[in-house]
């Protein structure tokens, strides 16, 4: 006896068992056998990419058009973008020509400026992290040095230039010193804050493990303060790039700052505009580089 039969055998059947309902399967109309040109995933990726790229392109285009319209009249004191491109085409096309003296392509000018920034900024980073660690770790160092830092950091970068020219008697080290003195304050202050904010928990771990001061410095202090340190380094690189252009205007020689000043003296307004665009682009790239290093070093605990 099958189980169903067993179950129903002692029940009075009310109705003769109906035949099992049969169903005819009607196939749904097959979807049009057209393969999409892009796979759905590639499509969403492209849409995301478009959503991030299109808005800045649009704003740039609108600004360029506005500029073109505003400056296209013959009496305009500033050149329109189309005129800038035609005036400076030589410079755009040959960034690395070298006719001796100051007559060099924009690539070389930027390279000279970047070299000064690299040196001054590297010194500021090393000395700044060291001093910041000292001020952050020792209350006495903080009491002694913090007021000095707070006063010195408000001095505008260019105000240091005459003094450094007097001290170094040469433009090159003076420019590097100005970069150094500009970039060091945010590095010191942020490093000190980062180290002062190391959670007690990490200090307790270090104490239980009996880490010695050197181990504590590089195993706990530096990594714990790294997000703060990199905030300081990012502010510092931005300030250095701001300061170098101004410093170079005064010290002369090869460099993007003096290039701008020189262009102004010979009324090459289009050259100035091109140089400004390059300065902005390089500043942006420098900031991104430091931000990317921060993410790589702090393993994602710092913000890009």
């Amino acid at each position: 006896m099958t189980p169903t039969a067993a179950a129903t055998s002692n029940v009075t059947q009310l109705k003769p068992q109906a035949a099992a309902p049969t169903a005819t399967v009607v196939p749904l109309p097959a979807p049009a056998a057209k393969k999409p040109f892009f796979s759905p995933r590639a499509k969403t990726r492209m849409m995301e990419w478009g959503a991030t790229v299109i808005p800045p392109l649009l704003t740039t285009a609108v600004l360029l058009i506005l500029w073109e319209v505003l400056c296209s009249s013959p009496t305009s004191s500033l050149p329109a973008p189309s005129k800038v491109v035609s005036d400076t085409w030589e410079l755009i096309a040959n960034p690395f020509y070298d006719n001796g003296g100051n007559d060099k392509g924009l690539g070389w000018q930027l390279y000279a400026s970047l070299k000064r920034v690299a040196l001054g900024y590297a010194l500021a980073a090393i000395v700044g992290i060291g001093l910041g660690a000292l001020v952050g770790a020792s209350t006495w160092a903080m009491r002694g040095l913090d007021p000095v830092f707070q006063v010195l950091r408000t001095i505008p970068p260019l105000a240091w230039l005459p003094l450094s020219l007097a001290a170094f008697r040469d433009g090159e080290p003076s420019a590097i010193f100005v970069i150094f003195i500009t970039a060091i304050w945010p590095v010191i202050i942020n490093t000190a804050v980062g180290i002062r904010n190391i959670p007690q928990d990490y200090k307790n771990v270090a104490q239980v493990l009996r880490l010695n001061p050197i181990e504590y410095f590089h195993k706990i202090m530096l990594p714990a303060a790294a997000p703060y340190i990199f905030t300081g380094l990012r502010i510092g690189i931005g300030l250095s790039w701001l300061a170098i252009v101004a410093a170079e205007m005064l010290i002369g020689g090869v460099g993007i700052g003096f290039f701008i000043w020189d262009a102004w003296n010979s009324s090459r307004i289009s050259d100035i505009i091109l140089a400004l665009i390059y300065v902005g682009a390089v500043g942006f790239v420098l900031d991104r580089i430091v931000a990317l290093i921060a993410v790589a070093v702090t393993r994602g605990t710092a913000n890009a």
Binding site: D201, N204, V205, V208, P223, A224, A226
Partner: peptide, 19 residues
């Protein structure tokens, strides 16, 4: 009189080093 690994502590908030 000082901390040491022979008296290891498990802290309430785990205190792992996030990096």
């Amino acid at each position: 009189d000082e901390p040491g690994p022979e008296r290891a502590v498990v802290f309430q908030n785990h205190s792992l080093l996030p990096w």
